[in-house]
Simulated scan of single mutants.
Amino acid sequence: MSGTWRRFGSYEVLTLHDGIFEAPLDVLVHAGGQAARDEAVARWGKPKISIPVNCFALKNADGITLVDAGTGPSWGEAMGHAPAAMASAGIAPEQVERVLITHLHGDHALGLFDGDRARFANAEIIVPEADLAFFGEEANRAQTPQNRQGGFAVAAAVTKHYAGRIRPVPVGTVRPGIALIPLPGHTFGHSGYLIEGEESLLLWGDALHLSDLQAFDPDVGLVYDFDATTAVASRRAILERAAHEGWLVSGGHIEGFRRVNESGSGYELIPA
């Protein structure tokens, strides 16, 4: 299912819903330790994690750009619906000119593939250079916990199926009106993309997975974070910056577009 196009700068932006990801509460951690984690979970009051998986379509005079690509068929029937959402919006895979990847996790990048081939025959794949450099170097696997090694397989598949069409990008402008914002911690090179305009939109990947719980207490993390301490620092910094700048935000696991407001020692994400 697709929603409604909304303008930010020179781009019309559409959320593409890929599915729902569910996980038990034991994937939650807290920078303050077990007692702080248990208190946060009790206060939250939910029996499990159930969050949307999103990617985004952008269109302007330069054609169609995606930010992330969903899971494809790799994560079961609850996900992999972004291609249907694209079709509903009238976007054919061959129309996609480029895909901006926030980081090389499966729920953001496996949708680049349709079985053993590239899904987007004409697209350039833009990847944060720090993420591709890390996951593209097999020697780094030995220093990576086994439950966080999925990015190596994703990087290898991108390199194989999009050979000659991959552009690693540093911090700063990656397209006219779009800037890469580094948000390390969830992965080594995890990043967001800021669509600049009179009203700007930050698509922040996985800076937050749980919009209510982690905004209220940014010290809450998930075991999927590569470096939990750095992820907390990035989360706090980007919440503060988005609130100060007045940016709207969304991401891989945020419902709709949100405005960030300060609230006590934390923040709130208000539907915008």
Score class of each variant (00 low, 15 high):
residue 40 A to M: 09
residue 97 E to F: 00
residue 165 R to K: 12
residue 166 I to Q: 08
residue 26 D to N: 14
residue 86 M to F: 08
residue 123 A to M: 10
residue 115 G to V: 01
residue 114 D to C: 03
residue 45 G to R: 09
residue 137 E to I: 00
residue 92 A to Y: 00
residue 126 I to C: 10
residue 109 A to W: 04
residue 100 L to R: 02
residue 29 V to S: 13
residue 25 L to S: 06
residue 60 N to M: 01
residue 122 N to H: 15
residue 57 A to V: 02
residue 45 G to N: 09
residue 155 A to E: 03
residue 104 L to G: 08
residue 70 G to F: 11
residue 124 E to H: 07
residue 60 N to D: 15
residue 77 E to N: 11
residue 28 L to K: 05
residue 39 E to C: 10
residue 134 F to W: 15
residue 138 E to N: 11
residue 125 I to R: 09
residue 160 K to T: 10
residue 122 N to K: 15
residue 90 G to E: 09
residue 41 V to F: 02
residue 31 A to N: 06
residue 159 T to H: 02
residue 167 R to T: 12
residue 44 W to C: 13
residue 68 D to N: 15
residue 66 L to W: 06
residue 34 Q to P: 03
residue 135 F to H: 12
residue 82 A to K: 07
residue 108 H to F: 11
residue 139 A to H: 11
residue 153 A to W: 12
residue 63 G to K: 12
residue 83 P to N: 03
residue 118 A to M: 03
residue 71 T to W: 05
residue 131 D to K: 01
residue 98 R to I: 01
residue 168 P to F: 06
residue 32 G to P: 07
residue 106 G to R: 15
residue 165 R to V: 01
residue 139 A to Y: 00
residue 61 A to P: 07
residue 47 P to E: 07
residue 58 L to P: 07
residue 83 P to R: 07
residue 107 D to Y: 14
residue 36 A to D: 15
residue 80 G to T: 08
residue 142 A to T: 11
residue 161 H to E: 03
residue 22 E to H: 11
residue 64 I to L: 06
residue 43 R to G: 00
residue 81 H to M: 03
residue 100 L to N: 04
residue 110 L to W: 04
residue 165 R to I: 00
residue 149 Q to G: 03
residue 53 V to Q: 09
residue 96 V to C: 08
residue 81 H to D: 01
residue 113 F to M: 12
residue 133 A to Y: 02
residue 34 Q to Y: 08
residue 63 G to Q: 07
residue 158 V to Q: 05
residue 78 A to E: 15
residue 120 F to P: 02
residue 140 N to R: 14
residue 129 E to D: 15
residue 168 P to Q: 06
residue 166 I to F: 05
residue 64 I to M: 11
residue 22 E to Y: 04
residue 36 A to M: 12
residue 125 I to W: 09
residue 114 D to T: 03
residue 67 V to F: 05
residue 46 K to A: 13
residue 92 A to F: 04
residue 54 N to A: 04
residue 51 I to L: 14
residue 117 R to P: 02
residue 90 G to T: 06
residue 21 F to D: 09
residue 28 L to R: 05
residue 112 L to K: 10
residue 64 I to F: 13
residue 75 W to M: 15
residue 111 G to L: 03
residue 74 S to M: 12
residue 91 I to F: 06
residue 48 K to L: 14
residue 110 L to P: 00
residue 86 M to H: 12
residue 148 R to Y: 00
